[in-house]
Simulated scan of single mutants.
Amino acid sequence: MAYTIFFATSTGKTEDVADKLKELLPGTEAKDVDNIGSAADLASAEALICCVPTWNTGADEGRSGTAWDTYAEEIPSMDFSGKSVAIVGLGDSSSYSDYFCDAMEELYTAFLQAGAKIIGKVPTDGYTFAESKSVIDGKFCGLAIDEDNESDLTDQRLADWVKQINSEA
């Protein structure tokens, strides 16, 4: 499976995580969604890993505060049938414990509506947070990463998750 990593970043942390994923998946390309031409670029990928930060905490929509917010509106009208999509969300489980990685859910819902096969859901075990819109049926709808408070866990979480998505794709 050939993944393309798509990311958006405000502070550089989401790009750093995308770069770590690129190292774990040799031959994988990473693209900043601020620099792609349109949502059609997303659809042209064989399989997608989408890395999204959460900034607009508590908002009903547009929770990433990045170009992902626009694409999340466009994706549902597109055809992603049969494409594997995995999502990585970044958030702050301490300062924003009530909104931890909320932006993941927007991409999850958008790609689900477009017919994508969502892979890479992870249990909430081992995470400390109060609430997250990205917890669906008892699991995160992707991989939650907290570079602010749990950066020491990031490398192992990414390595385990890459094995998981490769087995699910």
Rank of each mutant, 00 (worst) to 15 (best):
residue 27 G to W: 14
residue 18 A to I: 00
residue 43 A to R: 12
residue 38 S to F: 06
residue 23 E to V: 14
residue 16 D to S: 14
residue 18 A to K: 03
residue 19 D to F: 10
residue 28 T to V: 14
residue 15 E to N: 09
residue 2 A to E: 09
residue 22 K to P: 03
residue 28 T to M: 10
residue 45 A to Q: 01
residue 46 E to L: 00
residue 19 D to E: 15
residue 5 I to C: 02
residue 30 A to W: 04
residue 39 A to G: 13
residue 41 D to A: 10
residue 27 G to F: 11
residue 21 L to V: 06
residue 4 T to L: 04
residue 22 K to T: 12
residue 30 A to G: 00
residue 16 D to C: 02
residue 47 A to D: 10
residue 16 D to P: 01
residue 6 F to M: 06
residue 25 L to S: 04
residue 36 I to D: 11
residue 19 D to W: 08
residue 26 P to V: 08
residue 33 V to M: 04
residue 21 L to K: 08
residue 32 D to F: 08
residue 20 K to F: 04
residue 8 A to T: 12
residue 32 D to L: 08
residue 11 T to S: 13
residue 44 S to W: 08
residue 13 K to H: 12
residue 39 A to T: 12
residue 3 Y to G: 00
residue 8 A to I: 11
residue 47 A to H: 15
residue 25 L to D: 02
residue 42 L to Q: 04
residue 11 T to W: 02
residue 36 I to A: 10
residue 15 E to Q: 15
residue 27 G to C: 08
residue 33 V to R: 01
residue 2 A to R: 10
residue 22 K to D: 01
residue 41 D to H: 04
residue 19 D to R: 14
residue 36 I to M: 09
residue 37 G to V: 14
residue 32 D to R: 07
residue 33 V to K: 01
residue 26 P to L: 09
residue 46 E to P: 03
residue 39 A to M: 09
